[in-house]
Computed example of a mutant assay.
Amino acid sequence: MRLAKLAAAFAATLIAVSPLAAAPLAKEKARQTTVAPKARAVEVILLRGGIGGIFSQGLDAIGAELKAQGVPARVAGYGSWRSIERQLIAARDQGRTSRIVLIGHSFGADAATAMAAELAQARIPVDLMVTLAATAPRPVAPNVRRALNFYFASGGWGLPLTAASGFRGKLDNRDYSRVAGVGHFNIEKQSAVQDEVVQAVLGVTRGGRKR
């Protein structure tokens, strides 16, 4: 009788430590310890036109609305684009990748197209680029996934965007020349334009969640 009990205990031990018995437990443990991947960070950069920080104030309103929506955004002068570009490249080189959104008005719009072209050389994608009344824009670089441009075919000062060779994204030129009272110096202050820009950014960062 004692030998039978010992044999039964030995058999139970073999079952408990066998790979077939351990597999379900390992799978269950793996499910419990799996951590959902973090969402990619977002870099929303708004570039002013003009000199002295008194131009393109509508970008401040866009930036403030994005922050209110929980989207980090920073407003800078157009002359800062090269240093910001270097920061983005350095972050990528350190393994910190972000969804990048570039927004610019006037000279800031020109700077946004230049920054996108330079980021293309570094193989860094731009999820969204919004340009308002660009004066001398570069062609939209192939790393840009969507470009939204507000321009004036007549009666204003702002050019349509063209696509660079290899561009496969979406390019949307919006002609505002027939909108009364809107011109180069106030297009970024229009509430309808601001709202569309904010929604476009949310479309990148949150899958288009409405306000």
Results as ranks from 00 to 15, higher is better:
W81R: 09
R82G: 06
R92T: 02
Q87D: 14
A76M: 00
G95L: 14
W81I: 11
L88A: 02
G77D: 04
L88T: 07
W81M: 13
L102Y: 01
T97F: 04
R99C: 03
S83A: 15
I89E: 08
A73E: 00
A76T: 08
A91M: 00
R86C: 14
G95F: 11
G70H: 00
D93W: 08
A73I: 02
P72E: 08
P72G: 06
R92N: 04
A73F: 03
R96D: 13
A91Y: 04
Q94E: 11
R99Q: 14
I100Y: 07
R92D: 01
A91W: 00
V101E: 10
P72S: 02
V101A: 04
G95Q: 07
W81G: 10
S83M: 12
I89N: 08
V75P: 06
R86Q: 15
S98L: 07
G79W: 05
S98Y: 03
E85C: 10
R92H: 03
L102W: 09
L88R: 14
R92G: 04
V71F: 03
R86D: 15
D93M: 11
S83K: 11
W81D: 10
A91C: 02
R96M: 08
I84G: 12
V75D: 03
I100G: 05
A73K: 06
S83G: 14
W81K: 10
A76C: 03
G95C: 09
S83F: 15
R74Q: 10
G77Y: 05
G77T: 11
Q94G: 12
A73T: 11
Q94S: 12
D93I: 02
G79C: 05
S80E: 10
A76F: 04
V75I: 14
E85I: 10
Q87C: 13
G95H: 01
Q87A: 15
E85M: 14
D93N: 07
S83D: 15
V75S: 12
T97K: 13
R74I: 06
S98W: 01
I84S: 09
G70Q: 00
S80Q: 15
S83R: 14
E85K: 12
I84D: 05
D93Y: 02
V101C: 00
I84N: 01
G70I: 04
A76P: 05
A90N: 02
R82N: 09
I84A: 02
S98F: 01
P72Q: 01
R86V: 12
G79R: 03
G79M: 09
A90E: 11
A90D: 11
V71M: 08
V71R: 08
G70P: 05
V71D: 04
I89C: 03
Q94Y: 03
G70V: 00
R82F: 10
Q94T: 10
R92E: 01
